[in-house]
Design a protein around this nucleic acid. Sequence first.
RNA 1: GCCCAGGUGGUGGAAUGGUAGACACAAAGGACUUAAAAUCCUUUGGCCUUUUGGCCGUACGAGUUCGAGUCUCGUUCUGGGCACCA
Length: 850
Amino acid sequence: MNKKPLKNIIDAMSKYPFNEIEKKWQKYWEENKTYKVTEDPSFPKDKRRYVLDMFPYPSGAGLHVGHPEGYTATDIYSRYLTMNGYNVLHPMGFDAFGLPAENYAIKTGTHPYTTTKKNIENFRRQLKSLGFSYDWDREISTCDEEYYHWTQWIFEKLYEKGLAYEANTPINWCPSCKTGLANEEVKEGRCERCGEKVEKKNIRQWILKITAYADRLLEDLDSLDWPESVKAMQRNWIGRSEGASVTFKIDGLDESLEVYTTRCDTLFGATYMVIAPEHRLVKELTTAEQKDAVEKYIEETKHKSDLERTDLAKDKTGVFSGSYAINPVNGKKIPIWIADYVLISYGTGAIMAVPAHDDRDWEFAKKFGLPIIEVLKSEVDVQTQAWTEDGIHVNSSWLDGLNKKDAIAKMLEWLEKNGCGHKAVNYKLRDWVFSRQRYWGEPIPLVHCPECGTVLVPEDELPLTLPEVEKYEPSGTGESPLVNVPSWVNCECPKCHGPAKRETNTMPQWAGSCWYYLRFIDPHNHDAFVDPEKEKYWMPVSLYVGGTEHAVLHLLYSRFWHNVLYDLGLVSTKEPFQKLVNQGMITSFAYQKKNKSLVPVDKVKEVEPGKFIEEDTGEEVNQVIAKMSKSLKNVINPDDFIKNYGADSVRMYEMFMGPLTESKPWATNGFMGVYRFLDRIWRIISERKIEDIEPSKDIDRLTHKTVKKVTEDTETLNFNTAISQMMVLVNEINKLEVVPKKTLETLALLLSPYTPHLAEEMWEMLGHNPSISKEKWPTYDASKCVDDEVEIVIQINGKLRSKIMMSHNCDKETLLSAAKNDEKAKTWLEGKTIVKEIVVPNKLVNIVVK
RNA sequence: GCCCAGGUGGUGGAAUGGUAGACACAAAGGACUUAAAAUCCUUUGGCCUUUUGGCCGUACGAGUUCGAGUCUCGUUCUGGGCACCA
């Protein structure tokens, strides 16, 4: 990709001493606690901001280029706010429980805490080397006892509120991670961490009743300034649906079958029913003749993985139970089938099947020869395909002639009057499987007592700390390694003081991140998870920046916990994160052959602009954008760039690449452009003649324009265009023999959120005391942003034909007559009749002719 | 299948309904240099034209408008999410 090795370019380039400058100012900031923030009461509420990053998991690989992207964005914004007179809370910490450290412990025997500590130190070093304005005194780690003390405490609040329950239900199980998973952690039937196929397993679990908050989690989304896509994902995930619950009597049995349907209007078309293989009535409904067939089928479905069961492409399977239900609207007997296309976990695990108007039911009916009755006038033959659109009801007795909406209303009324159904709401959202059968997580603070049942560990005994273990290996039987520590497991019941056993499951990684934003507010409080006054001082988070991968995980879980804390009166805001911004992914270039296979970057040569060939074969390859991966040799390590070009260049480039929210490829050549820009500034400040003179009118005007643009764009997080405006200004300054000091001061201030080290150095060189981060943001005079003369575009019939220079704020008549007298315009107007004239002051004249 | 984004030069990307391509990269040419690097200057959407200039051009096709990259409708492609949710 690069013809010349990068290293040679650097060595030869005139280089600004970023290394010394950056070290010098990082040391200064640290020693002077420049970014320490307190709950200073002199700032009124509207002059306080809480700017938060999604804290990282401290992996062994260190920072990825994606981290500095979001972190620089919030850092710029925080610094900008501070300079504009806000008190800004901008903290950083570590999401430190998690599987990699534990898996490493299994392999090497190293305690996960040791590994994690080491990784945190590396992360902290890297973060500090980027010059972020975090208040490091507030740093937290979720795996510290001091911290998880309060994670456990919040769990106890949830438990006391009845939102945590123990259940022995089939849950998602990852055979490779050897632990249960939450629904949110399963992507396309696979474990979101390791990609292994997820199985169903029946094990004892602690579950949090997130479904109790489904409606609130849905409704409150409207009040949030979040990307629509994330809101849409959460809405879809919660999946609220309105319909009806209908009860079917069973022929010859004193039992009934309840179903959930969104289409109760099609009840006259229900020709059979289906229950899930796990339905509680399976045994009872199976007749003697069908017993063998049913048992065989149930056995088969048990062995199917989730992925196999939900694979849409696969054929429908099922078996007749032998029993019949009575359709409440017409008294007809309809057969009850057992099939795994009905899920036990949604609705009642049973459905009424209307094959004429539902694709899945239609497919099943066709396969098993069940009747298909049209009940909505269809534009297709329902014997050959299902009609799922709206229509006028037919074959539906007293619903005939009504459309879908009216028929649903009328049917609901009928069902309620006749006591066989009612309006109902269902959600796709499932309760949160909260226990993990692993070591490296918060112990769930519960004790199982044979006398008293489940008992909470008393608050004054928290934190319940993780014991040392000999082996970190999960048992794989559905129990955590903690079961192997009898001295820890065997305990005294806090209630009756008899012998009891501790809960051995641990919490999922999401627990710690559910509330960390609250702990940053008061990280060293020994008596409470957060001081209420401080909480009121800072909350809610004004800006939260992070990747989109947590849309239905962390962001849903923490909203849930926050809602509960709000109900308990422990926090003052309904929602934790007022404004959310998703940074785009930083991708990389890769090269694709005709057969769509990708070629590693180091095997590709650019033969002419935009034309690439694979070196070995000479085959032409296309430049495409791909995720960074080791095999493609296109992974960018931010440490290398910080070392070779400085943190300011990395910060500036990541912001210059494109809009924060878009995904965009790393281009090292583009990076060099930004480096050159900073180098140019350095040469101006260190080599050019700088004098305390008034800037020329042109430079003054450009400076005001630049302040305006950088202010507006920083405010709205459009950092890329703010930077290009600064480049425009620097390019002009670079042409000057003598540079006015005033102009450079303004430039330093504008730069300071973006390239804080270079800006501090400039500020000092211009004769000021540090720190520039405490200075006031520059202001601009709108009247000084306008040019004396503006270019007026002359259009004839909307087509650009000429341009003229006119003085600013010319009146319409002057503009029009000037346009008409323009030589070029005249040739286009000759012999034509003017139909219409449009004049936009300071912009254009459009003359419509015939 | 459903729900969200999005499609602009060789590349990353700019454009309150008003000059499409700011800024940057890459490329070509030049200055400086013994030479190279760095730096500085010039050119750079396509086609036609000696110049002047003209025509075309923001995925495709319509529409609204004096004027559309931008608004509306349809099509198509790409990315992300969900998916037998009754």
